[in-house]
Each structure stands twice: as C-alpha cells, then as structure tokens.
C-alpha cells in the first residue's frame, strides 16, 4: 500500500525538522526543490533549516530552485533502508541510473551538505510512489 503524498509530506517534514545532523548546521539552509517521482510530485520549501511548506500538488508555473526527476522505481530504490549500489545517492543515480538533476544546480551546491542528509531521510520515511 503506497502512502498518500499528504501523509508522506507530514512524515518527511517531521523527520527533517527534528533531524539533529541538519539542526547542527541549519542556519541558511534555505532553498526550494521539486522531487518528480513520476506519479507523485512535490515542491519542498526550506527556510533556515526547517520545512516551511511542502506543495503536494504543484501547478505548471510553481517555482523552485532545482529539480530531481526519476522513475517511481528509482525513488522506491532510494527509499530502501540500505539502497542497492548506484541507488545510494543523487550523484550515483545521476551518473549511473535515470535520475536527472535540473534547474539551478548552484543552489543545490550551496545547500548540498544538508540536502544530502535530507535526501537520505527517505530511507526512514519512504516515498509516496
């Protein structure tokens, strides 16, 4: 049973906001990003290390800094407690699998430390696809 995108957003927000590794360096972790999982899309807006809002039904003109796009199967692989090789991060999956990183990648780099920690929360939270 796939969780709803709304339930996912609640769980992800809570997990991110209470994550100690993000909290240790939260100031200035401010950006917005789209996760395109095929059958589900979300825009996460971060302000100073906290989830300000998750848009679970993005409209075509809704803005974000950068996007990660991959197939639902790839997102499910990201969410395994121990992902298989090449599904264990955004770099590996963009080099060797179907993940596409688009948009303002400089914004991604400016927030890379915390974004990487946040991405790995999917292993605990799961994905809505």
């Amino acid at each position: 049973m796939v969780m709803s995108v709304r339930d996912w957003a609640t769980r992800f927000s809570e997990a991110s906001d209470r994550d100690q590794t993000i909290g240790a360096m939260a100031k200035y972790f401010t950006c917005s990003y789209l996760w395109d999982m095929g059958t589900a899309k979300v825009i996460v807006e971060m302000i100073d290390g906290k989830v300000y809002r998750i848009n679970v039904d993005p409209a075509p003109m809704d803005a974000y800094d950068f996007a990660l796009r991959a197939s639902p199967q790839t997102w499910r692989e990201f969410a395994r407690p121990i992902p298989a090789p090449m599904f264990h991060g955004i770099w590996s999956a963009s080099f060797r699998r179907d993940l596409k990183i688009e948009g303002n990648t400089l914004a991604l780099m400016q927030n890379l430390r915390n974004f990487t920690v946040q991405f790995e929360l999917l292993r605990k939270v799961g994905v809505p696809v």
């Binding site: 121990i82 992902p83 090789p85 264990h88 991060g89 955004i90 770099w91 590996s92 400089l106 780099m109 400016q110 890379l112 430390r113 974004f115 990487t116 292993r123």
Partner: peptide, 17 residues
Amino acid sequence: ANAAQVCGSGVWDLMAP
C-alpha cells in the same frame, strides 16, 4: 558556494551506506 561542504558532500555517496 561553500567549497568545503561541496567537496565533502559531493563525494558522500561515493561511499557505501
């Protein structure tokens, strides 16, 4: 960008979980 963090986290998933 903070090059120190870019390098540290840019190689993060070169490691096994």
